[in-house]
């Protein structure tokens, strides 16, 4: 298998090298990719959408269909993870581990019984040291991570960033909670149902914005039709439409990242995480 793989890889590589000989040199301003449609995007984006970041305007406005179905793909991936891994059959472990919060003494408790006093907290059966510094620092950092993520989503029109990056960071903030405390704490904060609903809501916000344009008598995802609803001129309406769509993307991506992490790290049991 190794030899076959090497031969196939070398064959594919040599074909690509042969094809690369015809490419224009790196950084050529007159290469075919740079003269066909992108000059129009670069020159018209300010007067048509009022969004300085060309990447954002192309992503959410000129190529809105593309991004909508990418969001759907991400949603489908979350659902696929859930369907592959989630198990509802509860098989109780033989014994659970509890730690005394003040002294750090760990005790084993048989299945079906409760710890002797409420001062005990449940810990994972894998190696979990008593890490006060990590817990405290992560708890302090999470609000700032979320604030920065909201800034990234809202300021995507003027600087690098947007729904995808901000959504991933919002998801990462909850994943940090699940890693520094334990999975049960994070799931108590954001229930599985709420998470699944969030994924679907994100896709719905995106598609709903498009459908709203349709209802107001324009094409699907043509945000200039939103002008009478938002009380702005059509150009500004496109800018606001891009923002609405980015919020939808952010919500969907956040939900899917948390969903995949919860399922993979607990093998679908939602009991003991990383």
């Amino acid at each position: 298998m190794k030899v076959v793989g090497l031969i196939i890889a070398l064959l594919a590589g040599s074909l690509l090298v042969y094809a690369t000989a015809d490419f224009p040199p790196l950084g050529d301003p007159n290469s075919p990719a740079s003269v066909h449609v992108s000059p129009r995007y670069i020159e018209k984006t300010m007067e048509e959408t009022d969004v300085p970041n060309i990447v954002t305007s192309v992503l959410a406005d000129y190529r809105g269909y593309d991004t909508m179905f990418e969001t759907t793909v991400i949603f489908c991936a979350g659902v696929a993870c859930f369907l592959l891994l989630r198990v509802y059959r509860r098989e109780e472990p033989q014994e659970r581990l509890y730690r005394h919060v003040l002294t750090g003494v760990t005790i084993h408790v048989k299945a079906g019984k409760l710890p002797p006093s409420p001062d005990f907290e449940r810990i994972d059966s894998a190696w979990t040291p008593h890490d006060l510094i990590i817990k405290t620092i992560c708890r302090l950092l999470i609000p700032f991570i979320q604030l920065f993520a909201l800034y990234v989503i809202a300021h995507g029109h003027h600087s690098p960033g947007g729904g995808f990056q901000g959504g991933v960071m919002l998801g990462a903030s909850v994943i940090v909670l699940a890693m520094s405390q334990d999975l049960r704490t994070a799931v108590r904060r954001l229930r599985e149902k709420a998470d699944a609903l969030m994924c679907a809501t994100g896709v719905f916000i995106y598609a709903g914005t498009g459908a709203l344009c349709l209802l107001l008598g324009s094409n699907f995802l043509d945000y200039s039709a939103l002008a009478p609803v938002l009380h702005v001129d059509p150009i500004m309406a496109r800018s606001h439409g891009i923002f609405m769509v980015e919020v939808g993307v952010g919500v969907a991506v956040m939900g899917v990242m948390i969903w995949i992490y919860n399922n993979v790290s607990s093998m679908g049991k939602y009991d003991e995480g990383l």
Partner: peptide, 28 residues
């Protein structure tokens, strides 16, 4: 705005979504 002054944004857009889809496929 002159098109020659700016990088081509189109590949960036396509690849931005491709990265996020790649993490979704990685999850599956």
């Amino acid at each position: 705005v002159h098109a020659a002054d700016y990088l081509n944004p189109l590949p960036h857009v396509l690849m931005l979504t491709a990265i996020v889809v790649s993490v979704a496929t990685l999850g599956v």
